[in-house]
């Protein structure tokens, strides 16, 4: 587990270009949105002393007063955010295709490049995403029904701790199930890239079986990276709380901190993929996304480097 995390982080460091791609994939849409919001906000706060409150401790109050007032014009832009999320998701699927190709097939030469990855696997990955989305449905239903039952039971028992327990437990179970489903999603796509497989649906469920057979180490690695990703936000919050950012320098410094935090987050995101590559290899680099008929004798679409430090660890 820790070796996969360490290995993932090392691989991430070696592929800084991927980190930049992932970073830009969220920065650019956010930046476009911010550019659209700038004239609206500066129209509201630019020549009004009331806006100065945003620089101090009462910024929440200023913001709520603004949000409730007739001067609030951000509504249409705010309504765009769900759409932006959808677009970002599609974009991230393509980015994954590129990243996985680079991580598995090496970024030297044309064959293993990011662009080739996007072109060759983008379509297949979108289909995978469908399988993944389908698997999320039962997860949501199970969690929804379970927590509702639990809540009713806790309420009829009159014990608040029970309700709290159920709430926390259902969150934990939901997260656990989500991680399993998400791991299978990533591993099946790695298999598709490694073996040029096309049967992404079948591959997805086979990968899920594989994950369920040996979940502990994979889960540990995944949680480790999720922890790292969460820490970028937490550390930012901690640092950000230590200064007021009332001056131009302060605001600029806060901006640098924000973008550093996002860059690190992107780095951990790429490292998670790299960690999953290690996990996939440790599971035997299976051809989940290819039919039995011809996959058995086929070669991987590219040489799997033998120098992967972790490939044998899990096979015992």
């Amino acid at each position: 587990m820790f070796d996969w995390i360490r290995g993932g982080l090392a691989t991430g460091r070696r592929h800084r270009r991927l980190v930049w791609v992932v970073y830009l994939a969220s920065l650019i849409p956010a930046l476009l949105w911010a550019c659209a919001a700038f004239p609206i906000l500066s129209g509201a706060f630019g020549d009004r002393p009331f806006g100065d409150g945003l620089l101090g401790a009462g910024s929440f109050q200023v913001w709520t007063e603004y949000a409730a007032s007739d001067d609030f014009q951000l509504g249409p832009l705010a309504a765009l955010i769900p759409l932006l999320l959808g677009v970002a998701w599609l974009l991230q699927i393509l980015v994954s295709a590129g990243c996985m190709n680079v991580l598995l097939n090496g970024d030297s030469g044309v064959e293993g490049s990011f662009v080739v990855g996007v072109r060759r696997f983008g379509g297949r990955f979108l289909r995978s995403a469908l399988a993944f989305g389908l698997m999320l449905v039962p997860v949501v239903i199970i969690i929804g029904a379970g927590s509702r039952l639990g809540r009713n039971w806790a309420e009829s028992s009159g014990n608040g701790y029970l309700r709290l327990g159920f709430f926390v437990a259902s969150l934990a179970v939901a997260f656990f199930l989500f991680v399993l489903v998400d791991l299978a999603y990533d591993l099946s796509r790695l298999s598709a890239v490694a073996w040029d497989g096309r049967q992404t649906f079948r591959g997805y469920f086979r990968a899920l079986m594989a994950v369920l057979r040996q979940p502990r180490k994979l889960l540990g690695m995944y949680l480790g990276f999720v922890g790292l990703i969460a820490s970028t936000v937490l550390v930012y919050q901690l640092l950000r709380g230590s200064f007021a950012a009332a001056s131009a320098f302060g605001i600029f410094f806060a901006f640098l901190l924000q973008q550093l935090s996002m860059w690190l987050r992107s780095y951990f995101q790429v490292s998670l993929l790299a960690g999953e590559v290690s996990g996939y290899r440790a599971l035997g680099s299976s051809k989940w996304c290819r039919g039995h008929g011809f996959s058995e004798s086929s070669e991987p679409s590219a040489e799997i480097p033998t120098a992967v430090p972790t490939s044998e660890v899990l096979l015992s």
Binding site: F38, L41, S42, G46, G51, S59
Partner: peptide, 9 residues
């Protein structure tokens, strides 16, 4: 004044 807008943005 741009500072408040820049900060919140």
């Amino acid at each position: 004044r741009k500072a408040p807008t820049m900060k919140i943005l």
